[in-house]
């Protein structure tokens, strides 16, 4: 595991760029993403579909497949750059120090292997346990993630389990080797709210027990507000706003963040009349705007926004924003009304 290294943050991503190469076209799925996950904290990444959340997380584990490629940046895990590691070193990290759970519990488990075999595999690869020991540990893991009658379950196949149960199994696989970082890519999107509550609760408890950092990807702002310490808002492959959760929800700065918050009808309050909407739709990757990527949909956009891409600015608290409105060069109307639902 290399020399002992002192580090502040479990993960630090700097200017990550991941592209897909099609016929004479480079599709920048992740374009200069930077964010930090402090030790034992939860970072939420939110954004609409196609904003590059999954590709960012797969890049961390270096699981990007052809025709995709990480073309630049640094991924510092415990202070060491993962992009400099050999493939065999990466394999020792995957499932051991960094684990991942995915959105679709129904398809993320191998249909022809038993639950026990699939959890046990982690123990066998990373801890060299025998088949029998691995099975015993698998039973313990199932117990940990709250699956009733685990001794029976380890012998079952995925089709015999419900969606919520399967996601618990995925969590058991991910946590088998006590990882330092858990990446959860929309872990509850396919589940019902009551099951979502169970799963998020479980992740939170285990995080406290095991002291790991969590990267929680979601498109649900409610999930972010309840489960995360810091938040990165992504739009078209870039982080447009990065802030601690209280600041983000109380004083959202980026027009995209604000628009997103206003478009969600809340369940605990009535909205008179229409919802406020962000006009238009996410631009297709082939027709990415040259200036600020949100400019075509932004109610405040000026000529500057349309022609020049703003840089990510960091304030004294470490919060970041990528918007011309929050720079000295701003040439539009300064006073905006910022209210989110009343």
């Amino acid at each position: 595991m290399g020399k002992p290294n002192s580090y502040e943050n479990i993960l630090e991503i700097k200017n990550l760029q991941t592209s897909f190469f099609t016929k004479d076209l480079e599709l920048k799925a992740v374009d200069g993403v930077s964010f930090t996950i402090p030790k034992q904290k939860t970072l939420g990444v939110v954004g609409e579909s196609g904003s590059g959340k999954s590709i960012t997380s797969l890049s961390i584990l270096r699981l990007i497949e052809e025709p995709g490629k990480i073309v630049g940046g640094e991924i510092l895990f415990k202070g060491e750059n993962l992009l400099k590691k050999k493939e065999s070193e990466m394999r020792n990290i995957r499932g051991n120090e960094i684990s991942m759970i995915f959105q679709e519990p129904m398809t993320s488990l191998n249909p022809t292997l038993t639950i026990g075999e699939q959890i046990g595999e982690s123990f066998r690869i990373h801890q060299g346990l025998s088949k029998k020991e691995a099975l015993k540990k698998s039973v313990e893991m199932l117990e940990l993630v709250g699956i009733p009658s685990p001794k029976k379950r380890v012998k079952q196949y995925p089709y015999e389990l419900s969606g919520g149960m399967r996601q618990r199994v995925m969590i058991a696989i991910a946590l088998a080797c006590n990882p330092n970082l858990l990446i959860a890519d929309e872990p509850t999107t396919a589940l019902d709210v009551t099951i979502q509550a169970q799963i998020l609760d479980l992740i939170k408890n285990l995080q406290e027990q095991l002291g790991m950092g969590v990267l929680l990807i979601t498109h649900d702002l409610g999930v972010v507000a309840e489960s995360c310490d810091v938040v990165a808002v992504m739009y078209c492959g870039q982080v447009v706003e990065y802030a601690d959760v209280k600041t983000l929800f109380k004083e959202p700065k980026h027009p995209y963040t604000i628009g997103l918050m206003k478009s969600i009808p809340p369940h605990d309050q009535d909205i008179e009349g229409d919802l406020e909407v962000i006009k238009g739709a996410v631009p297709s990757p082939a027709e990415m705007p040259t200036g600020c990527r949100f400019a075509p949909r932004c109610p405040f956009a000026t000529e500057l926004c349309k022609t020049k891409m703003p840089e990510l600015q960091t304030d004294e608290n470490g919060n970041q924003i990528r918007c011309w409105m929050h720079t000295d060069e701003w040439d539009g109307v300064k006073d905006r009304e910022v209210t989110v639902h009343g």
Binding site: V193, T194, A197, D220, G222, V224
Partner: peptide
């Protein structure tokens, strides 16, 4: 109660089924 809320101040009571 299971629906996550965007209100970061209010810690609500949740009935987890």
């Amino acid at each position: 109660s299971a629906i996550p809320s965007t209100d970061v101040d209010k810690k609500k009571e949740r009935i987890i089924l």
